[in-house]
């Protein structure tokens, strides 16, 4: 269970505003975190605290394939992104790096900026502690849940190659 303050944004939060291209020349996670969400919310990097939660609308993370986007959010200390839906490359990238995301249109709609939110990632449970409302996120297919449980894609691939004797 993680509890934090919600940073709420709208639909189509793109990877250019999550981490602008002018900062992609230095992919160190701590550097990326300094500029996370800069072009949509310049105060984000200065005010986010470990455990806080980003809430987005539809198509969160659309645009570029830059893995720097979920890396910058993860390195900011954010515990989870909740959205009505995710753009597919962002969705893959988050799973692949072992960063928790939850798809839940009802929570994405109801949670307000600054609400205190608790999430149980394994159970897919979201609680808006400020309003008392609870929500259930869409469950991951077992294969994807397995990748997440193993800490991302690489442990899965390594294990597979070793089994094949490579």
């Amino acid at each position: 269970m993680h509890t934090g303050k919600a940073f709420k944004y709208g639909d189509n939060v793109d990877t250019d505003v999550i981490i602008p291209a002018r900062y992609l020349n230095n992919p160190a996670p701590a550097e990326l975190a300094k500029h996370c969400m800069e072009d949509i919310d310049a105060s984000f990097a200065g005010s986010v605290r470990p455990g806080d939660i980003i809430v987005g609308g539809a198509n969160f993370g659309c645009g570029s394939s830059r893995e720097h986007a979920p890396i910058s959010i993860q390195a900011s200390g954010v515990s989870c992104v909740i959205a009505a839906s995710f753009a597919r490359i962002f969705y893959r990238n988050a799973i692949n790096i072992g960063f928790p995301i939850m798809e839940c249109p009802q929570a994405a709609e109801a949670i307000r900026m600054g609400d205190t939110v608790s999430v149980d990632f394994t159970a897919g449970k979201i609680v808006d502690e400020t309003t008392g409302e609870t929500f259930q996120a869409t469950a991951f297919p077992p294969f994807i849940a397995g990748i997440i449980e193993n800490g991302g894609l690489l442990p899965y691939i390594k294990d597979k190659l070793e089994k094949e004797g490579n």
Binding site: S65, N96, I147, L153, L154, I157, L161, N166
Partner: peptide
């Protein structure tokens, strides 16, 4: 299709990837 860097790394190592 476009993917991220971890997918690229896994692809370079194994020549495989998962798709829905």
């Amino acid at each position: 299709t476009g993917v991220g860097s971890t997918d690229m790394a896994a692809g370079m190592a194994s020549g495989l990837n998962w798709f829905k």
